Computed example of a mutant assay.
Amino acid sequence: MRSRAYLWIILAAVVTAATTLAVFGTVPRPLFREAPSPPAAAASKPASVPQPRARAATPDRITYPAEGQGTWVEAARQKDAPAGSEGLVMRYRVAVERGIEGVTADTFAEKVTTTLEDPRSWTAGEQYRFRRVGPGQSADFVVRLATPGTRDALCDGADGYTSCRNGANVVINVARWVKGVPRYGAPLTVYQQYVINHEVGHRLGESHQRCPRRGGPAPVMQQQTLGLHGCTANPWPYPDGKLHQGPLGSYNDPTPPRDRGRR
């Protein structure tokens, strides 16, 4: 009896196991499966990491010695047609003195060209057009960004502070380009436009002028670097489409001390 009962117990266990296998043998067991992989594109895409943006040179990072090397790097030529609708084509080159760091010849040239091509600049009078040419090409003038010492070597008079035009050289003192002048009352970019138009104006035969009316804009040919004399800062010869002038003449303004360089 005991062996028959034992046999029935074994038989019942076998039947139960077979039934369980028949019912659950094909059911997946998720506890033992790996988590699904992300799609291939998502898996291969790198995480987005913010990249530092390239920063153009600003006056705060332009440095220069008091005395430069007197050698130059010239900007590439401009490929566009001359700026202006009518008038004599004035070809010019742009150069930056070696030793001035933080600004390239091409970067400086773009600012010069943008200023001269502005409709408020000298082309508005329809007497001149401007075209920037490349290194070694024939030019009517050269716009030079120079150290204070080289400015003195190129200009008629050594003050190390102002900019000048002497012959075919339009000399922009890098000290003024970077620092501007005290009490100008306008952003540095406005002063930079002024000094370009003022010195190029000399190359076009323009002479110094005085403030025509207190509270009004200064003529671009006024020596705004040394004083405004009641006028307000103005970088354009044709600020409203008309030539803005004052009486011929200048003021007996003192020139500030020469610049000693900036490192």
Rank of each mutant, 00 (worst) to 15 (best):
59 P>F: 13
59 P>Q: 08
59 P>G: 04
59 P>N: 01
59 P>R: 01
60 D>K: 02
60 D>F: 02
60 D>E: 03
61 R>G: 09
61 R>S: 14
61 R>F: 01
61 R>N: 13
61 R>V: 05
61 R>I: 08
61 R>A: 05
61 R>D: 10
62 I>W: 01
62 I>H: 02
62 I>Y: 09
63 T>Y: 00
63 T>R: 01
64 Y>S: 06
64 Y>G: 04
64 Y>F: 14
65 P>L: 04
65 P>N: 02
65 P>C: 01
65 P>G: 06
65 P>S: 08
65 P>V: 12
65 P>T: 04
66 A>W: 04
66 A>H: 06
66 A>I: 07
66 A>G: 15
67 E>G: 09
67 E>P: 02
67 E>H: 06
67 E>K: 10
67 E>I: 10
67 E>C: 09
68 G>Y: 07
68 G>E: 07
68 G>D: 07
68 G>I: 02
68 G>C: 11
68 G>Q: 00
68 G>N: 04
68 G>V: 12
69 Q>K: 15
69 Q>H: 13
69 Q>T: 12
70 G>E: 04
70 G>K: 08
71 T>Y: 13
71 T>N: 12
71 T>P: 09
72 W>K: 06
72 W>T: 03
72 W>C: 11
73 V>H: 02
73 V>Q: 13
73 V>A: 11
73 V>N: 10
73 V>E: 13
74 E>Y: 14
74 E>G: 00
74 E>I: 05
74 E>W: 11
74 E>H: 11
75 A>R: 10
75 A>I: 13
76 A>G: 08
76 A>K: 15
76 A>I: 01
76 A>P: 03
77 R>V: 14
77 R>E: 15
77 R>M: 11
77 R>F: 11
78 Q>C: 13
78 Q>G: 15
78 Q>E: 15
79 K>Q: 07
79 K>L: 04
79 K>R: 07
79 K>C: 00
79 K>A: 09
79 K>S: 05
79 K>D: 04
80 D>T: 01
80 D>Y: 11
81 A>L: 08
81 A>N: 06
81 A>K: 12
82 P>W: 14
82 P>S: 10
82 P>G: 15
82 P>H: 06
82 P>M: 14
82 P>T: 11
83 A>W: 05
83 A>D: 06
83 A>S: 12
83 A>E: 05
84 G>A: 10
84 G>Q: 08
84 G>T: 15
84 G>V: 14
84 G>S: 12
85 S>E: 15
85 S>A: 14
85 S>N: 03
85 S>W: 09
85 S>T: 15
86 E>P: 00
86 E>T: 03
86 E>S: 07
86 E>D: 13
86 E>C: 02
86 E>R: 12
86 E>V: 07
87 G>E: 03
87 G>S: 11
87 G>K: 03
87 G>M: 03
87 G>Q: 01
87 G>A: 07
88 L>T: 14
88 L>S: 04
88 L>V: 03
89 V>R: 05
89 V>G: 09
